[in-house]
């Protein structure tokens, strides 16, 4: 059910990836996402896939656990695929009624599906291997220069960290309220769109009330523990780069070069002749 959503949930284990500096992981995620939109041939996707799956392997997070988190976005993925399939103009290969699927549509849909899946998998590796506190520490330190432009870096980082901590709690709560209302005969499944939207009121009102109560409690608890913003705070786990972080940066640079050279510069035809198949 709703509890199965694992995006953003830290998975506790010990691995090289877990031990990397969060800044490295943030940069890596960014680089990986950029690379996904840079590459434009099959070899490029193969390189991205290789990179991604070696990271998953290195992270020691069970693949099943990661895939379980993907369930939540299957719907989003389907929509993207369907839209791309039908709405890309080009040479029609298949048509029913007024809709037709074009060759370009198929390619584009496949590309988008792969990109989206990789994107989510890639970013979930980051959140699965980095505690939110660590992640926000990384963001805070990495984005520190932005403070010169009056960007409240610490506050944003703290907000994100709190949001992440409360996601599982609120999900569980949603599940509970849903069941409680179902026990009173509520029906969240049948009916048209408007009916469905209306049936969410008994779920959303209690959920919001609870979220506000929690926010209020938490703010009080934080103040009681002397929280007063980022100034003058020290760190229990201050960030400093180690050897492995430099190695990671190097690997990342190498990956980017591969992506650009092999995944973009070499044309499809060149690869085709290389491998010996024509597309």
């Amino acid at each position: 059910m709703i509890r199965d959503i694992t995006i953003g949930q830290y998975y506790q284990t010990d691995s090289v990836i877990h031990r990397l500096d969060p800044r490295v992981k943030l940069v890596a995620t960014l680089v990986f996402i950029v690379s996904l939109f840079l590459v434009n041939n099959i070899l490029g996707y193969v390189i991205a896939a290789l990179f991604l799956f070696s990271m998953i392997k290195l992270s020691h997070v069970p693949f099943k656990f990661i895939v379980k988190g993907m369930k939540a976005i299957v719907f989003l993925l389907m929509i993207t695929v369907v839209f791309n399939l039908f709405l890309t103009p080009g040479e029609a290969v298949f048509s029913i009624w007024k809709l037709s699927i074009s060759r370009e549509g198929i390619i584009l849909a496949a590309k988008m599906a792969v990109r989206l899946t990789f994107l989510i998998l890639g970013s979930s590796i980051m959140t699965l291997t980095t505690t939110p506190n660590n992640l926000t520490d990384g963001m805070e330190k990495g984005l520190k220069p932005l403070r010169l432009f009056k960007v409240p870096v610490h506050e944003v980082a703290m907000m994100m960290s709190i949001a992440l901590r409360f996601i599982p709690i609120l999900l569980e709560e949603t599940d509970k309220i849903m069941k409680a209302q179902m026990a009173r005969g509520a029906d969240f499944e049948s009916g048209g769109l408007i009916q469905k939207a209306k049936s969410l009121v008994p779920l959303l009102v209690p959920l919001f009330i609870s979220a506000f109560r929690r926010a209020n409690d938490l703010a009080m608890a934080m103040e009681a523990r002397c929280y007063r913003g980022g100034d003058g705070r020290t760190k229990m786990k201050p960030l400093c780069y180690k050897k492995r972080d430099y190695i990671a940066y190097l690997t990342l640079a190498l990956y980017m070069v591969c992506c650009i050279v092999l995944g973009r510069m070499i044309s499809l035809g060149q690869i085709a002749s290389l491998i010996g198949i024509t597309i």
Partner: peptide
């Protein structure tokens, strides 16, 4: 509603961090 850290030890460290205690 009063645990801020995602890991037990980080939560316990939250107060001292706010007080500016050395690492």
């Amino acid at each position: 509603n009063q645990i801020i850290g995602q890991v037990v030890e980080e939560d316990v460290g939250f107060g001292p961090e706010n007080m500016g205690i050395p690492t």
